[in-house]
Design a binder for these strands. Sequence first.
RNA 1: GGAGAGAUGGCCGAGCGGUUUAAGGCGGCGGUCUUGAAAACCGUUGAUGCUAAUAACAUCCGGGGGUUCGAAUCCCUCUCUCUCCGCCA
Length: 422
Amino acid sequence: MIDIKLIREQREFVKKEIEKLSVSSLIIDEICELDESKRKLLYDTECLRNTRKILSREISSEKNEEKVSAKKNEVKKINDTIKFQEEDLALIDNKLTELMLNVPNLPDPDVPLGEDDSHNVTVSYFNEKKSFEFKPLAHYEIGEKRGLIDFERGVKISGTRFYVLKKGFARLQRALINFMLDTHILEHGYEEVYPPFMVNEDCLVGTGQLPKFADNLYKDDDSGFWFVPTAEVPVTNMYRDEIIDPGLLPVKHVAYTACFRKEKMSAGKDTRGIKRGHQFDKVELVKIVLPEKAKEELSSLISDAQDILNRLEIPHRLVQMCAGDLSFSAAEKYDIEAYAPGVNEWLEVSSCSNFNTFQSRRANIKFKRDKNSRAEFAATLNGSGLALPRVMIAVIENYQTRDGLVKIPDALRKYLNDEEFI
RNA sequence: GGAGAGAUGGCCGAGCGGUUUAAGGCGGCGGUCUUGAAAACCGUUGAUGCUAAUAACAUCCGGGGGUUCGAAUCCCUCUCUCUCCGCCA
């Protein structure tokens, strides 16, 4: 959520920023109108409450019975008005909140202009593409040929977009998870958390998935639990409705979770292989930081994520999202794309975002600079570090040998019993 | 799943219809004293909204609803926590 005061005070500026996202700014006008009537009504009811309070106090000390009943009647009348106004206020307030929850974050000034992904900017390339003396196979070809990915049984036991990893590939994924976690904990200073994979609705409103993106999420109607689409949701929301003590920022967490997404929007897209499933594993980085440090924290978050690919010696590139391709909650976002020679694609293995105070306003995450200072909204950031299936694809395809084996990257050896090939 | 108990300010804890505009303690902050510190004593101490304001006012005693001139306090309801039993990886 953006600051309603900013809308109130700099309406035209906010509208202009929203339009950069290729989103209509009419919502801002609607908000301004509602906000104005809300505040007027609020002031009126507060005055009435104050009068009631004074009258009630007078009743308690009034001896004259006639005066008492006169005053009681007066308060009753006031109560009727208050009740009426409160109902009105609740209606306006609900509508206002609903609108505010649907206003996207404003783009950072450094974000390039552009309507869609064709205007994204590739910042730079890392690690040379490997050259092959044979035609590199796609991961699903290797997986099927060697019985390491079972697509048919995935569909049988669950449905389309599910698969079973077996033997060496299952092990490889487990090794990657541990490698990523250990690297972020030991080398980059993150603290590990293992959160629930199911959360309540408040969490998803807090990080911005709800109310707008309900159709990409799984939910158990019976219990009201939602399956996490990313660890960002439970980990960021650990601090919901909290005021973080002075000196505890930045908070840096790394978490492994499974992630669940309906992917209705991507129907028919990426149906081959393990690139886009309804369930996938991810190691996620989450930071809660001082607002003025958010941008530099984003840079270091990106390097922390990239470091995984560097240690695995996988070619990749860094892409900056243009305004029109920013996600709803992000002020600034960079994707890291790993190159997979088998499918000949740049795969998004990480998406690193700075949300500024957008999420912390929704989730009410605050901090204090000093013991006696006012609580302020913190900035939140997160990024994948990294998404497992696509890193699997990159490792499998980049490290494949002519005879269909996968050479284990040096960085992973110790997680795989120092073996050489899968 | 069954039975019972409970939810109050950063923490502990009183209050059970009107100086509660939440006692008292702990902790925190400021001060007195001291070479310094501790102890002791004195003062102070949250959130939200509106606002130029650390002013005034309003709201906040788990959430929602009700009774009343007036609710932390009474009633209803929901949620959560704890204890015991049952079941269980």
